[in-house]
């Protein structure tokens, strides 16, 4: 399995992403300490995969961070920390690192490196070599299937303060009737997909509105 995946986001061809996904990482404390001491070799966006819902969720944060970078509007030290910050629904930088970045008991991680025109020596190969040598974990695919396994939906809901509609009490008895008038078996099919997709949509909206 490819340990590092290179991709370019739409409209941002000048900033390729190199993304490594690792499960059951043993040396999180070490990686975190390198971040804290500011070792430039370890300048990645290190993210706790438990709080990532989907690939889109992750990449939307990258999109915002890179857009901020190119507009000279970074709120944090660099584009990598900005990615972690962009995931957070509020403006507290330290809190965003605590919640979306690495803590000592983090198990699964995503490491992202952003390529820039000023850093032509950063390539898929160099990032792969560095991550493979320094992250003690099992490489996983950057895919929704991975996050479906590593993600903790209950915790994600809590972080973004999104109530579970199905468990929340409907405000009035007429509520079910209001579900756009579509009832019966056809609305049941694909309901699960709609649920995750809807959670993702709300999260993207909250991330987009952050800082407003």
């Amino acid at each position: 399995m490819a340990a590092v995946q290179a991709l370019a986001l739409g409209h941002l061809p000048g900033n390729p992403l190199f993304v490594g996904t690792f499960r059951d990482v043993k040396n999180v404390s070490f990686l975190r300490s390198q971040l804290l001491t500011g070792n430039p070799d370890y300048e990645y966006a290190f993210i706790d995969a438990e709080v990532i819902l989907s690939t889109t969720h992750l990449l939307a944060a990258c999109f915002r961070a890179i857009n901020n970078l190119n507009a000279n509007r970074l709120k944090t030290r660099n584009v990598h920390s900005e990615i972690v910050f962009a995931l957070s629904p509020n403006n507290n930088i330290a809190e965003s690192f605590r919640r979306f970045g690495l803590v000592d008991d983090t198990k699964h991680i995503v490491a992202i490196k952003v390529g820039m025109s000023t850093t032509p020596d950063i390539t898929e190969e160099s990032v792969r070599r560095h991550l493979m040598a320094n992250v003690e974990g099992n490489a996983a695919a950057l895919a929704d299937a991975t996050f479906a396994e590593t993600g903790n939906v209950a915790r994600i809901r809590k972080l973004y303060k999104i109530q579970d509609q199905s468990s929340a009490q409907p405000k009035s008895q007429k509520q079910p009737k209001l579900a756009n008038g579509v009832t019966g078996p056809e609305s049941k099919a694909g309901e699960d997909f709609n649920k995750v997709n809807d959670l993702e949509s709300i999260i993207l909206g909250l991330m987009a509105l952050k800082g407003s």
Binding site: N67, I162, Q165, A179, N180, I202, L204, G205, A208, L209
Partner: peptide, 20 residues
């Protein structure tokens, strides 16, 4: 954007806000 996110949270079908 705020109205759209609010609608999405309440389950009204509107376009999701992807970025702003």
């Amino acid at each position: 954007a705020r109205v759209l996110v609010r609608c999405r949270k309440e389950g009204v079908r509107v376009p999701a806000v992807l970025a702003a």
